[in-house]
């Protein structure tokens, strides 16, 4: 079987107090892809991601390279939505990046020089080394996002989950992040990204999972990013205009 090279989500469902959040989501993604999880507000994108990570009670099965999530937890890097972080927390940039190493350090050991140098390298990759002594609240939105990307890099993970990484960030940070993600994908890392507006979808992602509580369509970007599927997902809250080869999408 090709299990070891793919991530399989099979009939994944989540219910909250009798209400359906997502239902029977099934798709397969191969290793090394950048996957966009797309859908309107309330479509269950975050729920899908949390269910895949085993953080929500769910029905169905998720296999990462043939294994259950608990067997590969150390290989999972997670970048939270910016508004879920307390930016007044007394940590500096370097402390946050070092957290990416925590799961690799046994409890009886101190953080080693190697861990710190890994963290520093990750910080250099996102171009934030000059800010390593700043408190995280002093940074701009894009810089904050880059710090969290650096934390994920420091972790040496195989799987990356990013929740709305492009919301409220500057053009330069976006460029740096997108370049890094493409580089990671070349190194056979698989990346899931929740993305809620439809601009630049074709530029960012290799594959798409388009959903609105149920799966609308999943697969290659070119195959999924089509007016019919988008209309079905966004149900009139987005206008899709076909202009020759170019597709213009007006969000809600």
């Amino acid at each position: 079987m090709a299990d070891e090279r793919s991530i399989k989500v099979d009939r994944l469902s989540v219910h909250y107090h009798g209400q359906t959040a997502i239902r029977d989501i099934t798709f397969t993604v191969s290793k090394g892809m950048i996957v966009g999880v797309i859908g309107p507000n309330g479509a269950g994108k975050s729920t899908l991601m949390k269910a895949m990570l085993g953080l929500e009670k769910s029905k169905g099965e998720v296999l990462f390279f043939g294994k259950k999530i608990n067997a590969i937890r150390k290989q999972v890097a997670y970048v939270p939505q910016r508004n879920s972080i307390d930016w007044d927390f007394p940590v500096r940039v370097e402390d946050v990046v070092l957290m990416g190493r925590f799961m690799h350090i046994p409890w009886y050991k101190k953080t080693s020089r190697e861990d710190r140098s890994r963290a520093r390298e990750a910080l250099e990759k996102v171009g934030m080394q000059e800010y390593s002594n700043r408190q995280i609240g002093e940074l701009s939105g894009g810089q904050q996002q880059r710090v969290f990307i650096a934390r994920a890099l420091a972790q040496d993970a195989d799987l990356f989950f990013l929740d709305e990484p492009f919301v409220g960030i500057d053009v330069e940070s976006e460029k740096i992040i997108v370049e890094l993600l493409h580089q990671l994908s070349k190194e056979e890392k698989t990346i899931f990204i929740i993305h809620h507006d439809l601009s630049k979808v074709e530029k960012y992602f290799d594959e798409l999972v388009l959903l609105n509580q149920t799966l609308i369509h999943a697969g290659n970007v070119k195959e999924v990013y089509k007016p019919d599927f988008l209309k079905e997902a966004y149900r009139g809250s987005a206008a899709v205009i076909n202009e020759g080869n170019e597709m213009v999408v007006v969000g809600p």
Binding site: K50, L53, L55, N70, R73, K74, V76, Y78, P80, S84, I85, D86, F89, V91, V96, M99, F102, M103, F161
Partner: peptide, 11 residues
């Protein structure tokens, strides 16, 4: 304390 979701995600 700092990032509960990441803490959960890493087990």
């Amino acid at each position: 304390t700092f990032d509960e979701t990441m803490a959960k995600a890493t087990g």
